[in-house]
Design a binder for these strands. Structure first.
Length: 596
RNA sequence: GAUCCUGUAGCUCAGCUGGAUAGAGCGUCCGCCUCCUAAGCGGAAGGUCAGCAGUUCGAAUCUGCUCAGGAUCACCA
C-alpha cells in the first residue's frame, strides 16, 4: 500500500518533469530510500535531469515542488538538496495497514505474481548409505524455504525428493555389513538406521585401506585365493544387484529401509517434508529408454566401443557418455529419466533443482540433452545452485572425520538451548522445555543457513558459528516471545479497553513510524525473495524489524503508556509486528515460540 | 589450460536494478535490570569495499584487465 503511494508519486513527478523539461522522453525517475528518517520515507534524486534543464539538481527539485503545489498524492514534500523526498503520514495510514494485516492474518504478505504457475522443487536427494550432514542441511533449508516462498507468491508447489539408492557406493555399505555385520541391526544396537548403515560405509573405507596396505606390502597377495579385493567385490555386487540377484536385492531392500527410516526421522526433526519421493532404482531404466530414443532420433551416437555418447560441441563442451559400453547407466542417464517421469506425473511449468554449485556442469548438460530430446519444457528447468558449507580449516571431508553430522548438530544445539532455559530459570515459563529447546536450535540453524545468499560459499565454525545472541534465529524468536508476552498481559485486562478504538494518529515516534513502514512493506520483501529464490531477503527483513521493535520496546512502555488510547494503539502495532514476524518465520523455517 | 562462482571491519555476513556520511552481529572496551522476558538496549574503537583502468554529474554496485581463493571440465555420484 505504501508501494502504491510511492508509484503514484513517481508518476506524478514524472508528469511534472516532462512538462518542466518540455520533453516526452525523460529518464525514468529513480525511487530511493532516504538515509535518515527525518529526511522522509521515499527519495527521488533529480541528478539525471540536470543536463536537460541546464540547472542544478537542487534547483530542479525546488522548481518541481513549487510547480506541483498542492496537486500531489498524499504526503509531504521535503526538499533535501538534489533530492525531492516525500514523507508519508504513516500515523494516518496506520488504520489501513492494520485493517489489511488483520484481514489477511497468516496470509499477510502473500502475493499472486506466480498465480497459476505449477512449480516443482527438487531438493535434499540423499544417498541411502549415510546420514545427513551440514551440507545437506543447507540444501534442505533452502529447498524448504524456497518452496514456501514460491507458495507465498501464489504458485502451486510440489516438493520432490530423489533418493539415490543404487550404485556402487550403496553396494559398499552392503558388502561391509555382509562381511562384518554379524547379524546386528539398528534395533539390536539401538542406533538410528541411517547412522547404523553409515557406520558400515565407513567400515568399508577402512577395509579398503587395509587391503591397499596389504597389497603394497605384499604385491603377490592379489593372487592368493583367500585375498578379497574390496572394490572388485563391490563391483561384483553391483552387477548382481542389476541382474536382480535375490539375496542382494533383499539385503538392499532391508538396508535401504533402515536408512530411509532414519532420514525420515531427521526430516521430521528439521521440519522438512516432501510431496513425492522418486527413487533412482525406479528411474534409471526410464533413463536408458530415453537414451535409446535419442539414439533413434540421431541426437546421440553409438561409439565404436559400444557406449552411447552425445557430442556437446554446440554448447562448447566435450562429449558426454550416457550409457557405458556394457550398457549400464550413469548418474546423467538416471537424471534424464527422472525429469521425464516427473513431467509426466505432474506437468510443471517450471522445475527447480536445488543442488550444490559443484554440479553446474551436470545441469547445463542435462538441460541441453532434454532439449535435444525434444522436450519443450527443458527451457523451464532451473538449477538453483548454492555454495558450499566449509569449515574454518577448509572443506568437510568424511575421510578425515570432519563432517558435521546433522542429527548430532541439532542435538548439541538443543542441549545448549536447554541449558540456557534452565540457567535463566525459564523452565516454568515455557510449556515444554524439550520441544522449546529443539525449536530454538532449529531457529538458530535455519536462520544461520539462510541468512547467507545462496550463491555464496559459507564458513561454519562449529565452536562459534551458531550463537543465540545477536543477529540470530533465537534473537528473532525472543523478540516474538516478548511481544507475545505483552499481548498476553494485555488480554487479561482487555475488557477495560473495549470502549477504546484504534487511533493510529497517536503513533508519532520514529520507531513507530518505522515499524508501520516495515509492516506495510513486508509483501514487497516476500515478492523479492520469491523472485530471486533468496530466503536471505526475508532473514534480513526480519532482523531489521526485530531490531527496531527491540529498541522501541526498550525505550517505551506499551502496557503503561500515558493514555488508554496510546496503549491500544501500541498494542495493535505490536500485533501487526508479531503477525508479520510469524509469517516471515514460516518462510524461513524458524519456529514461532509464545515463550522462551 | 578452459568455464563458472567468490573477494566489503580481526572473524561471520548485509548492502550490488548506480545516488546522500558503506551497515549489522560476534570479538575488544565502556555503560544500562525499582521498568511489559538482560537470549535485551545504548555507546566507543575498528574500512585503500582485493588492485588498476574505464563508463558516468555520481561507482562497493556497471565494463575490462590483473591478483587471490574455491568449484567444475569422469564410461563417479
Amino acid at each position: 500500500m505504501l508501494n502504491k503511494l510511492k508509484i503514484e508519486w513517481k508518476e506524478a513527478l514524472e508528469k511534472e518533469l516532462r512538462d518542466y523539461l518540455g520533453s516526452e522522453e525523460i529518464a525514468p525517475l529513480a525511487i530511493g530510500q532516504p538515509p535518515k528518517p527525518e529526511l522522509g520515507d521515499v527519495a527521488f534524486p533529480m541528478f539525471p535531469y540536470s543536463k536537460a534543464a541546464h540547472k542544478a539538481p537542487a534547483m530542479i527539485a525546488s522548481d518541481i515542488a513549487s510547480r506541483l503545489g498542492d496537486r500531489h498524492p498524499a504526503g509531504d514534500i521535503i526538499l533535501a538538496g538534489p533530492y525531492l523526498n516525500v514523507r508519508f503520514d504513516l500515523p494516518a495510514l496506520s488504520g489501513m495497514i492494520l485493517e489489511k494485516v488483520e484481514k489477511d492474518g497468516d496470509d499477510y504478505g502473500k502475493g499472486d505474481f506466480l498465480k497459476g504457475r505449477k512449480i516443482m522443487v527438487e531438493f535434499s536427494c540423499p544417498n541411502t548409505n549415510k546420514p545427513l550432514h551440514l551440507g545437506h542441511m543447507r540444501n534442505d533449508s533452502l529447498g524448504q524455504s524456497v518452496s514456501e516462498l514460491l507458495k507465498a507468491a501464489g504458485a502451486e508447489v510440489r516438493k520432490v525428493n530423489l533418493i539415490n539408492n543404487r550404485g556402487v557406493h550403496i553396494c559398499k555399505s552392503m558388502l561391509a555389513y555382509k562381511l562384518f555385520g554379524n547379524g546386528e541391526t539398528p534395533e539390536s544396537t539401538h542406533e538410528k538406521g541411517d547412522h547404523f548403515v553409515g557406520r558400515y560405509y565407513v567400515r568399508f573405507a577402512q577395509w579398503e585401506k587395509e587391503a591397499e596396505k596389504a597389497k603394497s606390502s605384499n604385491p603377490d597377495i592379489v593372487s592368493d585365493p583367500s585375498f578379497i579385493d574390496p572394490d572388485t567385490e563391490a563391483q561384483k555386487m553391483l552387477k548382481l544387484w542389476e541382474d536382480g540377484d535375490k539375496d542382494v536385492r533383499e539385503l538392499w531392500a532391508l538396508m535401504n529401509k533402515w536408512t530411509l527410516d532414519g532420514l525420515a526421522e531427521s526430516y521430521r526433526n528439521m521440519g522438512i517434508s516432501f510431496d513425492k519421493y522418486y527413487y533412482e532404482s525406479d528411474t534409471y531404466k526410464l533413463g536408458r529408454s530415453q537414451v535409446m530414443k535419442g539414439l533413434e532420433m540421431g541426437v546421440f551416437q553409438k561409439e565404436e566401443d559400444g557406449s552411447v555418447q552425445i557430442d556437446l560441441a554446440p554448447i562448447n563442451l566435450d562429449k558426454k557418455v550416457l550409457l557405458r559400453r556394457d550398457g549400464t547407466t550413469l548418474y546423467m542417464t538416471q537424471d534424464i529419466g527422472t525429469a521425464v517421469a516427473r513431467h509426466e506425473d505432474w506437468p510443471f511449468d517450471s522445475l527447480i533443482y536445488v543442488v550444490a554449485s559443484e554440479q553446474k556442469y551436470h545441469f547445463r548438460v542435462l538441460f541441453y540433452i532434454l532439449k535435444m530430446l525434444g522436450y519443450e519444457w527443458a527451457d523451464e528447468l532451473y538449477h538453483l545452485s548454492y555454495g558450499m558449507v566449509n569449515l574454518p580449516e577448509g572443506k568437510m571431508k568424511s575421510r578425515e572425520g570432519t563432517v558435521v553430522d546433522a542429527d548430532d548438530l541439532l542435538e548439541e544445539l538443543s542441549a545448549l538451548a536447554r541449558n540456557e532455559i534452565v540457567e535463566k530459570n525459564r523452565e516454568n515459563d515455557v510449556d515444554d522445555i524439550d520441544r522449546t529447546a529443539r525449536d530454538i536450535a532449529l531457529g538458530a540453524l535455519n536462520y544461520y543457513l539462510l541468512q547467507v545468499q545462496p550463491t555464496k560459499d559459507m564458513v561454519f565454525n562449529p565452536k562459534e558459528s551458531i550463537a543465540f545472541n545477536g543477529n540470530t534465529g533465537p534473537y528473532l524468536q525472543y523478540t516474538g516471545a516478548r511481544i507475545s508476552s505483552v499481548l498476553r498481559k494485555f488480554s487479561e485486562s482487555e475488557s477495560q479497553y473495549s470502549d477504546v478504538g484504534f487511533n493510529g494518529r497517536v503513533l508519532v515516534l520514529d520507531d513507530e513510524k518505522e515499524l508501520l513502514k516495515d509492516v506495510a512493506d513486508f509483501p514487497l520483501y516476500v515478492r523479492k525473495a520469491a523472485e530471486n529464490y533468496d530466503p536471505s531477503v526475508i532473514a534480513a527483513y526480519l532482523y531489521d524489524i526485530a531490531k527496531t521493535f527491540s529498541h522501541y520496546y526498550h525505550d517505551n512502555q506499551i502496557l503503561k503508556a500515558e493514555t488508554r488510547e496510546l496503549i491500544v494503539a501500541r498494542i495493535r502495532l505490536s500485533e501487526m509486528v508479531l503477525q508479520v514476524m510469524k509469517n516471515g518465520f514460516r518462510l524461513i523455517g524458524i519456529p514461532f515460540l509464545e515463550a522462551m
